[in-house]
Amino acid sequence: MRYALTRIARFVFVFVIVTFLVMLATRIGSKDPIRDLAGGQVSPEVMAKVEADYPYIEKCEGALAYLPCMGKQYAAWTFDMVRGEMGYSYAQEQTVGEMFKQRGPATFWVGFWAIIIGLLIAIPVGVYSAYKRDSLFDRFMSFGSFATLSTPQLVVAVFLLYAVASRFDFFPNLWNYVAPWSSPVDHFKNFFLPSLTLGIGLGAVWSRLLRADMIMTLQSDFINLARAKGVSPNRVLWVHALRSSVLSLITSVALQLSGLVSGAVVAEQFFGVGGVGGRLVIAVQQNDILIIQAITAVVVAVVVIVNVGVDLLYAVVDPRIRQARALG
């Protein structure tokens, strides 16, 4: 119980700090927030309507008054958010809620498959590299992952686009959202390359992490004991050693989540994915304040919630953590 309460308190704290900072950041670049909100050069009538819709939005001035003024606006925005009114984009003539409904699934699937691809690369490579440490395989994989890590996602995306997408008719020229349950094949065609763009990098990082942890684990006494019991090498590796080595991997998966958002921007732009990332870029260009704030709010919420999930997962993996928490 205490555990849940501290978690919730921490969630609220992080959420408030990050969203407030984002609001400050969008406003510092804005000379006239109402006009930005309205979408630039519009008629006085529209301006008047925007002002009427968002009476709390005003330009804050004066060194002393600045923070209280922003604080008041932040409170009003939070109140709207809690009521489920995330705002309206005049530039795109769409509520933020509709925007998420339309574009959210695409981003979710890109991220989801990217994580799966990352793990599919990292787990076999990490485990086997650790098992055959300093072998040709390990050295090749170590070189490969450093090469991947030092390649910007941009370059990966360009490579996949020209070397793969443009040469094979299999991949569509024009991206289309297809849910996996309506057509798995079409879903794969549309989502594979953008997810791979993100997944390769993740796989590279995670395989290094897992390799390092596995090497430590493989030297421990209980692994020696498992071998001395005559447990098969595969079982030693995949049952005894892997489970003890996944804690940092799990942590990293959670930590990479926010990084995934910026990666998603690149991937979505290149492959024309109609996702939230692409929308965020447009919003930033137009200084579409409410969209930026809403997207950050959702990203922060997702990241924090996933972190709570990861925390719970620790306890599932390690009984000692379970016990320590029970003593709380």
Binding site: S220, D221, F222, N224, L225, A226, R227, A228, K229, G230, V231, S232, P233, H240, R243, S244, V317, D318, P319, R320
Partner: peptide, 24 residues
């Protein structure tokens, strides 16, 4: 050696704190 380990030859180690799998 697998058929020998555990079946014909067994071993116990010094530190009982680290020699058992903590997660099993």
């Amino acid at each position: 050696m697998r058929g020998v380990w555990g079946k014909e030859m067994a071993m116990i180690f010094q530190d009982p704190m680290t020699s058992l799998n903590p997660l099993m």
